[in-house]
Design a protein around this nucleic acid. Sequence first.
RNA 1: GGAGAGGUGGGUGAGUGGCUGAAACCACAUGUUUGCUAAACAUGCGUGCGGGAAACCGUACCGGGGGUUCGAAUCCCCCUCUCUCCA
Length: 423
Amino acid sequence: MLDINFIRDNKEFVIERLKVKNFGSAEQDVNAAIDTDALRRTTQSQQDEMLSKSKQISKSIGLLMRDGKKDEAENAKVEAAKLSDQAKDLVNKLRETEEDLRDLLYKIPNIPHNEVPTGKSEDDNEILFEKGDKPTFTGEVKPHWDLIEQYDIIDFELGNKITGAGFPVYKGKGARLQRALVNFFLDQASDAGYTEVQPPILINEASGIGTGQLPDKDGQMYRIERDGLYVIPTAEVPITNIYRDVILDEKDFPIRNCAFTPCFRREAGSWGADVRGLNRLHQFDKVEIVQVAHPDRSYDVLDEMCKHVEALLEALQLPYRKLKLCGGDISFTAALTYDYEVWSAAQQKWLEVSSVSNFETYQANRLKLRFKDENKKKRMAHTLNGSALALPRILAAILENNQNENGIAIPEVLRPYCGFESI
RNA sequence: GGAGAGGUGGGUGAGUGGCUGAAACCACAUGUUUGCUAAACAUGCGUGCGGGAAACCGUACCGGGGGUUCGAAUCCCCCUCUCUCCA
C-alpha cells in the first residue's frame, strides 16, 4: 500500500498518477484516506494525553498506599477510574479509525511509474521490441493440443478424471521435458546469483496481505477453509514474505531468491477463446525470481531481471517480444511491468510467458520490509519479481514451433537435461 | 491423539501486581588507551504511532486476542506456536 504520509504530502500527484491506472475513485479514495488519517492523528493525541494523566494518577496511588495515606489513595482511585474509562473510549475510537484507514489504503493501487503508458487494456501495451525469427512451415502446422495427443505426452482427460479441467497430467517425455525446463531455469537463476529456496506452497492470510493478493483478490486463489490457508498463485508470495517484518542492513543488498513451485489459480471469470490446451491452466509450474533492492537502484535491478528472462528465451530459441504494460493492464500492486510473450506458430499469436515487475515500496510497506541506510535511517526497500519462466506456454511454443515431419526437436540447451533430442 | 513445560529486546536470560520498556551477560556501534592485532575501560544500542526543525517528549508493544484492577510482562480465560515425554 501507499504510505499515507506520501499521499498527504503529494495529494494531487497521487490522484493524477492513479488516473493513469484508470482507478476511477482516485480522488474520492485519496481524500477519504487523508481525512481519516487526520482524524486518526487527533484521536491519538487525545488518547495519549488521557492515558498519560491516568498513568500518572495510577502511579501516585501506589506511592500514597505505601505512605499509608489511604483516604487520598481512595479518592485518587475514583478519579483514575473515570479517566481510564474515557481513555478506553478513545482507544477504541483510535483502533476503529486505524482500521478504516488501513482498509482505505488497501483499496488504493500502486502509483504507476512515469514511463507507464496510458491505456485501457492489453491492446494499448507498448511493444518495445521483437526478437528471433518466427518459424515458417510449408505443410500443416498443428496446435500443441493436437501434438500432445499425437505424441501422448500430456493428458487432459486424465487430469479431468483425477481433479478437473485445467489440471493436466504430463506423461513420459512430456513430464521429462517439464522437469528439464525447470532444472534449466533453476540452474540459470543460480548462475545469475539467485539463491534457490523451496518455500511452502500454502500461505497464511498475513502473507497474502503482504504481497497484495489479499484482501481483494482472494477469489483468484484456492482457499483451504478449515486451516485458514491459501494455495499460492505464484511463488512471489512465499518468497517475498520471507522478508516480511524484516529490517535489513544496507549491506545485505542485493537480495536475490529463486524458486520452482507449482502455481494454482482459480481463473474465475476467464472463460474465453484462449483457454484451450496449455494456454490457461489451474495448476502450472513456474520458476520465479525475486529481488529485494535498494530504492535508488531498483530500476537497474528491474533491467537486470529483464535481461535474465531474455537470455532464457534466446537460449530456448523462441521468438519473443517485450511489452511495457499500460496503465490499464498493469497489476494493482506494480509500478512498472514488462511482459514477455513468445510466438506460437500454430495459434499464430503471442503468449505471455513472463511478467517482470517493480513494486517499489508498495509491497514493502505492507510487509514492513525496511533497511537501515548509511545514516542508520530506516527506509522502505523495493521489491521486484519476475517469472523465469512459466512453463506451460513455453512448452506450447516449443511444441508448435519445433514440430517437423519426424517429431518435435528439443532445443539444444535442454537436451542434456532431457536425455533425448526429439519427441 | 494424551501429559507436561515454555514463548520476554539481535542472542542468552532475570523478572509473580506499582519505583520495569524491562536487570545482567553476549553481540553490535562510537570513543579513550596500549606501537599493530588483541585486550581493558567509557558511552550508546528495540519497534510502531503522535507531537517537534531538532534535541527530545508522549503513548503503545514482553507469542496473538479478551478479561480482572486505579495500575498487568506478572493474575484469569481463549487461541496459537515451540520443546519434552507417552501412545
